[in-house]
Amino acid sequence: MRDGLRLLPWTTPEGKPCYLSAEHDHSRLSLLADDVEAAQLRSGEQVLAGAKAVLADQAAGEHAVRFALTRASESLAEVLRIAYSRGARIQPHDPIG
């Protein structure tokens, strides 16, 4: 992560990361990024539920399993990006004592 920059939950058309000055937590772009992250997390919950259902179905075919795994991989990448971005914005604190 670049100092003072927030990793955004999307990339450029070429797949490169996008950053925003972390000093602007309430800017339009920052609030949009918050909304996109929330939508990605909700989507990840739905994908997880669907993947679990496919895995529990003994009759699920290869197509269903591959689709579930593909979506789960995409969602995991989004969640990891969110976690990395949020973790980088946590301010270190002094331990008590």
Results as ranks from 00 to 15, higher is better:
Asp3Thr: 11
Arg6His: 13
Leu7Gln: 08
Leu7Val: 04
Leu8Val: 08
Pro13Ile: 04
Lys16Phe: 02
Leu20Lys: 10
Asp25Trp: 00
Asp25Met: 04
Leu29Ser: 10
Leu31Phe: 08
Leu31Ala: 11
Asp34Asn: 07
Asp35Glu: 15
Asp35Met: 06
Glu37Phe: 04
Gln40Trp: 06
Leu41Lys: 14
Leu41Gly: 00
Arg42Asn: 12
Glu45Val: 10
Val47Pro: 07
Leu48Gln: 08
Ala49Gly: 13
Gly50Cys: 04
Ala51Gly: 07
Lys52Asn: 03
Lys52Gly: 00
Ala53Leu: 06
Leu55Val: 02
Ala56Ser: 12
Ala56Pro: 00
Asp57Met: 02
Gln58Asp: 08
Gln58Ser: 15
Ala60Gln: 09
Glu62Gln: 10
Glu62Val: 04
His63Glu: 09
Ala64Cys: 00
Ala64Asn: 06
Val65Trp: 01
Val65Tyr: 04
Arg66Asn: 09
Phe67Arg: 15
Phe67Pro: 00
Leu69Gly: 05
Leu69Arg: 12
Arg71Gly: 00
Ser73Asp: 07
Ser73Ile: 06
Ser73Lys: 05
Glu74His: 06
Ser75Arg: 07
Ser75Ala: 13
Glu78Arg: 13
Val79Ser: 06
Arg81Cys: 08
Ile82Glu: 02
Ala83Asn: 09
Ala83Asp: 03
Ala83Arg: 15
Tyr84Ser: 11
Ser85Trp: 11
Arg86Val: 05
Ala88Lys: 14
Arg89Ala: 14
Ile90Arg: 14
Asp94Asn: 06
Ile96Phe: 10
